[in-house]
Amino acid sequence: MNAFELTLSGSPELPKSNEGDPVFSEPWQAEAFAMTVRLHEKGVFSWSEWAEALSHELYKPGRRADASDYFDCWVAALSRLVTELSITSREQLDDLTESWHRAAEATPHGKPILLENDPKR
């Protein structure tokens, strides 16, 4: 199995089409999925580590009944895993998240949103 197939099989409840392809409703979901495949491929974490991190988020109480927060859980699992592996810290991720929010607000329509557009950077 390649990394893509492993990510599919190691990700419980992943929404899939009839053909077995993952189904995304927004691009950030596809990006989060693609980053996970890539980190897998690079051996940053094993598929069992991933499956465990994702399950942990999926089975937390307070999930939406319609499972529309599936990829929110995905991103939470990926964030946790990379902080546990000391690739980054929770603080750094939170800072960057705020920075991207400010960058988006500061970017006029029609221009690409770049991190350096954050006025506080």
Partner: peptide
């Protein structure tokens, strides 16, 4: 221009993972 919370978080992950060369 406005990023949803999830868009911004994914961009944050992408930024840090790119910086680390991963």
């Amino acid at each position: 221009n406005h990023f949803s919370e999830m868009q911004a978080r994914v961009k944050a992950l992408e930024t840090v993972l790119t910086q680390k060369g991963l």
